[in-house]
Design a protein around this nucleic acid. Structure first.
Lengths: 137, 137
DNA sequence: AAGCATAGTTACGAAATTCGTAATCCTCAA
DNA sequence: TTGAGGATTACGAATTTCGTAACTATGCTT
């Protein structure tokens, strides 16, 4: 991981469709070099995947879920990630919590998700924060 | 936004490099249709951007930042997003907070970030959660 | 019901990008 | 100095994307 790698990553983060030739021009090298490096970065899983950032609905939110201490987080997380509105499920340190990042049509839908989460026995409580503004680094 | 759109989005979320021809085969339509729809979805900003998910470091974390009530969140968020290790900055509802999603080389680097955040006058307090496990929806 | 407008879909050749591969260049160590 | 290994460059072939025109379906108006 040198500076050239970092430059390439930063360009791809902004627009993953930028052609190798254009990246090469921008960073001052050849298409093949950019290609090799992107392939290497992908193999090393520094680039986890090429993906799209979507906003299918109008409301994004963070739902923090407090779970019972003796519960299998992993199974719970697996269940949450199946929900269509859920973009990410994070198991986090701190207070035995799981955090959902969701993308909903409206606040009603956020509320539905919270209700569905609370219906599960393993879930002791939830705390929701609407994401009002997102900046991408 | 119909089911065809949703199928296309789901394929692109898994791998944004999937060629239109391949998506077309998978969903049972033609290359042109997929292309038109991706273009439309991009214009409507349902697809916000094509990007890469990276893990440059070994530690991802959520840093929740409590800010003084009369502070301009937006300016603060702009400052944070410039930090190299910061993937996202969210202004959230709940407790006048800003949340940083960071990707660091190690826990020491996370700690540095927290220290740097706390050095700012506007910042009243922070709460950090390491992301131990991430699932993608 | 016919006519028309609009959006969506299909088709196809042209342009651009990616890919495979071999040659070349660097750097470091023996 | 020489050799080995990795990175970079070069270039033609394969694939994908793009521009555009024809076609289809749907709904609205008269």
């Amino acid at each position: 991981m040198d500076d050239l790698d970092r430059e390439i990553l930063s360009i791809l983060r902004r627009d993953a469709r930028t052609p190798y030739t254009e990246i090469a021009d921008e960073v001052g090298t050849s298409e093949g070099t950019v290609r090799n490096r992107v392939e290497r970065l992908t193999e090393e899983e520094i680039i986890e995947r090429f993906t799209i950032a979507t906003q299918t609905g109008n409301v994004k939110a963070m739902i923090e879920i407090e779970v019972d201490v003796d519960v299998d987080h992993s199974a719970l997380a697996d269940a949450f990630v199946e929900w269509a509105e859920v973009d990410f499920v994070w198991e986090v340190s701190g207070e035995e919590d799981v955090v959902l990042i969701v993308d909903c049509a409206d606040t009603g839908e956020v509320n539905d998700l919270i209700t569905r989460a609370r219906e599960r026995d393993e879930v002791m409580g939830t705390k929701t924060r609407l994401i009002l503004e997102e900046r991408v680094g």
